[in-house]
Simulated scan of single mutants.
Amino acid sequence: MSLNNMSLGTLVGKQYLFKWKAFAGVFNSMIALQLLAIVFSAGGVGQTGTSTGSVSIDLYYYSVDNVVGFTMVWAFFKSILITTKSYRNDDYLFVTNRLSSNLANILFVFSASVVAGLTAILSGYVIQMIQYVQGNTFLTEANPLSLGEWFTGAFATILYILFIGALGYLIGSVVQLHRTLVIIIPVALLGFLFVYDFNEPGMISMFKFYFKENIFWLFAMKILGTVLLLFAASMLVSNRLEVRK
C-alpha cells in the first residue's frame, strides 16, 4: 500500500509512538519537580499541637498537594514546549498534515497527564515512607480512603492535570502565530494575575463551576468538555500557521 493511502488512524498512531520516544526527556523534568515537591512536603504541610502538664503532642499534616501543584506547572510548560517549531518540524519525518500532528500531540498530552497524575498521587506513599525512615512511626490517615475513593481522587487529579495541559497547548499554539506574542501573552497573563480582582462574581462562579462540583460524573463532564474545547481551539489556531516550506 502506498504511503499516500495510509489511513489517518495509522498515521496518528505512528506519530504518537514517535512522540513517546522523542519526548521521553520531558518526564525527567517531571520526576525532578515531583521529588522537589516531596522534599518540601516531607516536613508537613500543616502543624498543630497541644500540651498538658509535662506531656506535649505535636501533630503534623502531610498531603500530596505540593506534588500535584508542581506537576500541573510541569504539564503547562510541557504542553507549550511541544507546540514549538523545533518539535513541529519533527513531524515532517512522516507523511503528515496539521490534523494528524495535532491528534498525535493531543494523545501524548493525555497519556502524559495520566502518568503524571498517577505518580503525583502515589507520591503520598513516598512521603509516608520517608516518615517511617525518619522514625516517625505513629502515622495515621485523618480520613482513610476506600479503594473507590482512591481511584476517584486519582482520576480527578489526572483530569486537572489534563485541563492545565490543554490550556498550555492552546497558549503554545497561539504564541506560534507571531513572534511578538511570545512576549505579549506572558506579560498579559502576569498582568492579569496582578491586576484582576479574583473576588469578582464571575471568577467566583467559574471557580465553583469547576472546583465545587459535588457530583463526580458532572465534574468529569465539565473538565472533559472544557478540555475538548481547548484542544479544538488549538487545532483551529494551528491551521492558521504557515505551511512549512
Rank of each mutant, 00 (worst) to 15 (best):
Y60S: 13
Y132G: 01
G44Q: 07
L81E: 11
S86L: 07
G46M: 06
M30L: 15
W150G: 02
G165K: 06
P144K: 06
F110G: 03
F40I: 13
D91H: 12
A120D: 09
K85R: 12
I164A: 13
S63Q: 06
V67D: 09
N66H: 08
V114D: 11
G148E: 09
Q47Y: 13
D91R: 03
L170A: 02
V55I: 14
F151N: 02
Y160Q: 13
Q47K: 15
A37I: 02
T137K: 12
T137R: 09
G135W: 06
D65C: 00
E141W: 09
T96N: 11
A154V: 07
A75R: 08
V64E: 14
L107W: 12
A120H: 09
V95Q: 08
I164W: 01
L81C: 02
L118H: 03
V133C: 10
I161W: 06
V114E: 10
T84L: 11
A75S: 15
I164M: 08
V45S: 12
L59Q: 09
G53C: 08
Y132K: 10
G117C: 01
S86P: 01
Y169P: 04
L93N: 08
F108C: 08
L147C: 01
Y60M: 12
T83S: 09
L81K: 00
S63F: 02
N97K: 08
N66V: 04
T50R: 01
F155V: 13
L147V: 06
Y169E: 00
L159S: 15
